[in-house]
Computed example of a mutant assay.
Amino acid sequence: ENTLLDGVMAQYTEKGTGGGVGKAQNTTENLSILKNGNDVIITSNPVNETPDTLKLRMWNTVNRSYKLELRSENFSDLGAIPVLVDRFLNTETPITDGSVATVYPFTVTSDPASKDQQRFYIAFKENKTLPLVITSITAEVKTAEQIVVKWRAADESGIQSYQLERSFDGIAYQSLATVNARSGAGDQAYEFLDTQAASLNFYRVKMTGTNGKVKYSDVVKAVIQKPAESFTLFPNPVTGNTVNLRFQNKTKGEYTLLLYNLSGQVILTRSVQHVGGNATHVVYLSEAVRPGNYKLEVKKEKCVKDYLSVSVLK
Rank of each mutant, 00 (worst) to 15 (best):
L132R: 10
V133G: 02
F124P: 09
E140F: 10
S136H: 14
E126H: 11
T143K: 03
Q146P: 04
L130W: 01
I134R: 00
S136R: 11
I137D: 01
V148R: 15
V133Q: 01
L130P: 06
T129N: 12
K142L: 14
K142W: 05
V148K: 07
Q146M: 06
V149K: 01
T135D: 13
A139Q: 09
V148S: 11
E140G: 06
A144D: 11
L130S: 04
I134Y: 00
K128E: 10
V149H: 02
T135V: 12
E145F: 02
A144E: 11
T129R: 09
V133E: 10
L130M: 02
T135Y: 09
I137C: 07
R152M: 13
I147K: 06
L130H: 07
K128I: 15
K125A: 02
T135C: 12
T138V: 09
T135I: 15
V133I: 12
A123N: 13
T143V: 00
E145D: 02
T129C: 11
K128F: 08
L130D: 01
T143H: 00
I134N: 00
F124K: 04
F124D: 11
K125L: 09
V149Q: 03
E126Y: 09
K142H: 08
T138A: 09
L130V: 09
T129K: 14
S136I: 06
K125S: 03
Q146D: 08
R152F: 13
K150Y: 06
I134T: 05
F124Q: 03
E126D: 07
S136W: 14
Q146T: 08
F124L: 11
W151L: 00
K128D: 09
V133S: 06
S136Q: 14
T138C: 07
L132D: 15
T129Y: 12
F124G: 05
S136A: 11
S136C: 07
I137W: 01
E140V: 15
K142T: 11
K128Y: 10
V148G: 09
F124E: 08
E140A: 14
Q146K: 15
I134M: 00
E140W: 13
A123W: 05
